[in-house]
Design a protein around this nucleic acid. Structure first.
Length: 280
DNA sequence: AGTGTATCCTGCAGGC
DNA sequence: TGCCTGCAGGATACAC
């Protein structure tokens, strides 16, 4: 569910409510979202102050004291809900996996229906190693059209698969990969290195634009995603291909096609996104 | 270096 | 009403 815009929206909503607070203790309802034994996890976070909240790729980062980082990968249905913090009353989490009780009152609940999410308490060096393995942030200043073109140029994999690979570029998921490819007029199955300069420049623009617009709309909610206030994202209204199989392309009226490769659905307009390279 | 497949888990929609 | 299948925003491991 959550890609970069959803994780970022969640962090922005959580920050004022959670930053500066202290974790009294953690209660583990479902240990399968952890990667270490529950007792070790609880010891790692107990009594720690949450200095700041950040995002990297699709991960929510809670920077704790003692140089520890609580890394929350939201998976498909993960959500962080501030419950009873500063007198707020968002919708109750339905499938709590971890509850962080806060010393100042209330708690932060990691809620996850499918439990594909993952919560880890890492040392500074463990996090640094993880961080290094992730590709560049697509909205950062350093992510230029040239950086994208160079990355694409080295790979034979389908460009949609390339975009989903967090080691190559961070934070892109299936929705925004498909939406950016449609806006750029690039077929998702095209081998990455066959994109022309014009195409990779268009893809660069489309990616940044789609991510920024989605951020402005508070992300995309298909069914589960909620921000820190429990509200859905509005970008679903702006989707041009994702989930629109058989419906007309907004640009040319050709029915949107669904393809399956890399074990995931790809959505495209066969007319606007030709299989052969184009230079226009 | 690729790709297809399976896995983790729950819920929902659609067909019968 | 129930039962079945397929599908879902993610990430990983495996064999080929």
């Amino acid at each position: 569910m959550p890609e970069l815009p959803e994780a970022e929206t969640l962090v922005r909503g959580l920050r004022p409510a959670i930053a500066g607070k202290t974790i009294l203790h953690a209660r583990v309802h479902h240990a399968d979202v952890l990667r270490v034994p529950a007792a070790r996890f609880r010891d790692c976070v107990r009594g720690r102050r949450i200095a700041t909240l950040d995002r990297r790729a699709k991960n929510v980062l809670l920077r704790l004291d003692a140089r520890r980082v609580l890394v929350v990968n939201l998976g498909m249905t993960g959500w962080l809900a501030p419950v009873g913090v500063d007198g707020r009353a968002p919708p109750r989490p339905t499938h709590p996996a971890i509850t962080f009780r806060l010393a100042e009152g209330g708690s932060l609940v990691f809620d996850d229906v499918r439990r594909f999410g993952c919560v880890e308490c890492l040392s500074a060096s463990e996090w640094a190693e993880r961080d290094r393995a992730l590709g560049p942030e697509p909205l950062a200043d350093g992510f230029t059209a040239r950086v994208l073109a160079q990355g694409l140029g080295r790979s034979r994999s389908p460009v949609r698969s390339w975009l989903l690979d967090q080691r190559r570029i961070a934070g892109i998921g299936n929705i925004y990969a498909n939406e950016a490819l449609h806006r750029a007029g690039v077929h998702p199955a095209r081998p990455a290195r066959t994109l022309s300069h014009a195409e990779s420049a268009r893809l660069h623009r489309a990616l940044r634009r789609v991510l920024r617009e989605a951020l402005g709309a508070g992300g995309t909610t298909i069914s589960d995603y909620r921000n820190a206030d429990g509200d859905p994202g509005e970008f679903v209204r702006e989707l041009r291909v994702y989930g629109r199989e058989g419906e007309p392309c907004f640009r040319c009226n050709t029915p949107v096609q669904r393809l399956v490769f890399g074990n995931r659905s790809a959505f495209l307009c066969p007319r606007c996104q030709p299989e052969a390279p184009s230079t226009t």
